[in-house]
Design a binder for these strands. Structure first.
Lengths: 94, 94
DNA sequence: AATTAATATATGCTAAAACATATATACGAT
DNA sequence: ATCGTATATATGTTTTAGCATATATTAATT
């Protein structure tokens, strides 16, 4: 499956949203989210951008040389490896 | 216009490719590349992924908090190709 | 096992991307 | 101005995403 789609799926789950909730937020039927996430549908850019926006992410074009370090940066994020002052004021941990 | 589309356009120019050359590489008519780049067409994921691949880039889903530093990383890439490590305790940036 | 919640599939319809091809416009060069 | 090259537009056809809706299947939970 496409890497980006898997990332969207992971982001949704991390946010604790169901397909139905995400679908309602972006204005799609739940079945479409399922179809997109399972790779049956080749979604349009605007759809993916909207999904990403709701999930507080953004689509970016990354040069090949930077993919590895950026992935490390992203994966280390929830481990607080990237210690910075932008600490979201949330209570619960998952 | 969409940020990702602009990035694709920039990446193509940076590689010194014409729309026709890119079109031939990805197997689309040149007119489609034009249409996509000018925002007239809402391309599908597979199309964008193919374009990115030819341009030696990749589409990634980036958490909102990391967009700024990653953009800095990408923009500084040709000037600081080896500066890929962050100083967690660093206070300001020069 | 039964119920609920979440995800996957299905159908008919509409709008638009993708396709093929062609032409037009813009932009440089000489 | 002319010639080559790059980009933008145009038209008609095919394919498919997206829409609406419904149902089926698959986890969880009790």
């Amino acid at each position: 499956m496409n890497d980006l789609i898997q990332s969207l799926k992971n982001a949704r789950k991390k946010k604790g949203l169901t397909q139905l909730q995400l679908a309602q937020s972006v204005g799609l039927p739940q079945g479409h989210i399922s179809s997109i996430e399972s790779g049956k549908t080749d979604a349009r850019l605007s759809t993916l951008v909207e999904m990403a926006r709701v999930l507080e992410h953004e689509l970016m074009l990354i040069p090949r040389q930077l993919i590895i370090p950026i992935k490390a940066l992203i994966n280390g994020e929830e481990l607080a490896a990237f210690e910075q002052r932008w600490r979201p004021d949330e209570e619960n941990e998952s």
